[in-house]
Write a protein that binds this DNA or RNA. Structure first.
Length: 355
DNA sequence: AAACCAGGCAACCGCAGCGCT
DNA sequence: GAGCGCTGCGGTTGCCTGGTT
């Protein structure tokens, strides 16, 4: 399946993988290398020998096993392994629960990575105030939508999820989209059960509800108001939101207390407050990687240092329905646990150690 | 049975970010 | 600080497959 095999001018094979090549790759991996270590090895072997991973494998096979060389570039090997050969890959159709998770996460995160870029540009280009930065603190890093979804669906790859979305779900949702909108608006007064265990997740869901509502409102406004409206003047949706009614709840607090942000959500309109979207209970989100553009050096000028910002945001949650949120839980939302970016790997981190 | 067509999906491409020298 | 190479990401490509005519 796939493209016709071909070789580029360097003699590195491209195109679909043959069973023999798969076997070579699996043999090489199973015999000594497992994924977390692969990245380390791949990197260091390349550095150490001046050859890419594929060439290394070819060389080792030729030297040690008298096998045919696997003339693949390292990138191709890595992709093949992560998307197809990895032992924990789950094949077969997506379950309804998995579909629901994908739909939900896509609804939450969108699929336009340029959003984050535009946020960064607006952040530094338009120089929004510090409150806007805090406003952005609670947003997930939507640069990594498919990767994040994959992390929520064990055994599924980002590529698989992306394909599934593009070929199945997108069309299906498009076809039922109008019905959904009608049913959502008709039931907006009814509280929808929030099934998230994590306060952080509920926080995100609640914020997303507010965002969705604001987007819908902006969308309605854009239909009513001529294209020269203020919304048009801010191509960044987050900046629009910050300057909208939803963002106002943040700004009010910002003005109320110059040093801390009090409540991020307590002023949320009731219709938003009770609104939620389904989140599979069995799939409690892992901590998001937060947006990375919070410049710590810049923040230090302010009375709120970055960490204090996070703590302050956490404190603010105590005044609303997320009173059970702890600093730790919010930290989970905003950071990798423990402050060490690689700690989440757990015992697998041993694979990063040299033999 | 043959031709056609649309959907599925593995694999590649291009870009941005990051780390090393 | 600049340049280079690597990594990881979303987007796109193009062959394969199964259904329809």
């Amino acid at each position: 399946m796939g493209r016709v095999p071909c070789c580029d001018k360097d003699g590195v094979k491209k195109g679909p993988w043959t069973p023999e090549e798969d076997q070579l790759l699996v043999h090489f991996k199973v015999s000594k290398f497992i994924e977390p270590k692969l990245k380390f090895e791949e990197k260091n072997m390349c550095n150490g020998f001046g050859l890419d991973f594929g060439r290394q494998m070819a060389l080792l096979d030729a030297l040690l096993f008298k096998r045919p060389c696997l003339l693949r570039c390292g990138k191709s090997c890595r992709l093949r392994w992560t998307n197809y050969l990895r032992p924990d890959i789950k094949r077969g159709p997506f379950s309804p629960a998995e579909e629901a998770t994908i739909v939900h996460l896509h609804g939450m995160l969108g699929n336009n990575p340029s959003k984050t870029v535009s946020v960064e540009r607006s952040l530094y280009g338009d120089k929004p105030d510090l409150g806007y930065k805090r406003f952005l603190l609670i947003l997930p890093d939507i640069h990594e939508l498919w990767a994040y979804m994959a992390s929520q669906l064990p055994g599924r790859t980002d590529n698989e999820i992306k394909n599934f979305w593009n070929t199945h779900l997108k069309k299906r949702l498009t076809s039922i989209g109008p019905k959904l909108q009608i049913s959502q608006s008709s039931s907006s007064s009814e509280p929808i059960n929030i099934k998230c265990k994590s306060p952080s997740a509920r926080h995100m869901v609640q914020w997303e509800s507010a965002r969705v509502e604001a987007e819908a409102r902006l969308s309605k406004q854009s239909l009513l108001i001529k294209p020269t409206s203020t919304a048009k003047s801010h191509p960044d949706i987050f900046l629009q939101l910050w300057k909208s009614e939803v963002g106002e709840t943040f700004r009010i607090v910002e003005e109320k207390d110059g040093k801390t942000c009090e409540s991020l959500v307590s002023d949320t309109p009731p219709s938003i407050k009770n609104e939620s979207v389904f989140l599979d209970d069995t799939v409690s989100p892992k901590p998001f990687k937060t947006t990375t553009f919070i410049d710590t050096t810049q923040e230090q000028e302010d009375t709120c240092k970055p960490n204090e910002d996070k703590m302050t945001v956490s404190d603010s949650i105590g005044s609303n329905e997320f009173a059970d949120s702890t600093d730790t839980e919010l930290k989970l939302l905003l950071d990798f646990p423990g402050g060490n970016d690689m700690e989440f790997i757990g015992e697998e981190s041993e694979f990063f150690q040299l033999p």
